[in-house]
Amino acid sequence: MGKDTAKLARGPLSLKKELTFQSVMLNYGLYIAMLATFATFAIINDKFLSLNNVVNVFEQAAYYLVCAVGITFVLVSGNNDMSVGSQIAFSSVIATIFLAQGGSIPLSMGMMLVFALVIGLCNGLFVVIIGLPPFIGTIATGYVVRGIAANMTKQETQYGLPAAYTQFAWNKTLGLSNLTWIAIAITLLGLYILHFTSFGRKVFACGGNAKAAEVMGINVKRVKIACYMISALSAAIAAMMLMSRLGAARSGTAETLHTECVAAAVIGGTSLKGGQGSVLGTLLGVFFIAMIRNGLNSQGVNAYWQLVFTGGITLLGAILDSYKSRANAAV
């Protein structure tokens, strides 16, 4: 016994010693990359790290952060949700049409949340109950709802939101815009639910080992469906934020949002294999991507190159994730 334990106790340590550079890069590589990029931009552009710019970036990324926090739940539960961008397009278009015809604001919000619950439930049914691969099941729902929105609007941008709605985004409280405060609130709520409640624990169990979770008496299907509903709800809130900010809605909106959210989560240490991740990590990931975009923007890099860049970052994050889980499995 003694010998065996000693051998095992030495195992991971000696591994670390041998692979110092590698393990540092695996665990902190992204942060190092982040710091390096920030430093580069800061040297080129002295306003890059100014408080003003940072606050500004945060405000622009607010709706995207809300969405990414929701997606983190789905990722940790071991699934993926490709439909968030389409959900935003769908509910913002319908709510804008409704509001432009004089509908009440609270009713429109209630409507959006109900739609979200239904779409989240559908995603859950397809993926968790019927067992479709998440990529197929949620892309399909995404196409359906975006298609409906495109048909309703003939792909024209919808205007006519009441002034109170559009003004909200631009009002400030304690120096920060309202949208920023909402994003902070949602992030804190997500942090609390995922990391400090029994439901959050169950999400980790289901994503980490669904079989074991079932044996431990956790209703795996219910938890995974609930995660889809959480993601859909946060997409609905993101949609409201986007409407308020843009004063309009369009069926073609947020087409790459899902990828960016997943990229942010993965950069923040959430595993695509489930069972691992954190809301704070996602916050960091969102901030990283938004800051770099801002830096590229200020250098006059066009949006298409930024897309290439986002793709590259996602790839890097995913590769690190895959190396990390392999290293974990080897212990």
Binding site: R201, A205, G208, V215, S271, G275
Partner: peptide, 12 residues
Amino acid sequence: EEGLVLNADIRK
């Protein structure tokens, strides 16, 4: 396979 969530810590 069915007993532990290997990535989670002992406490969890």
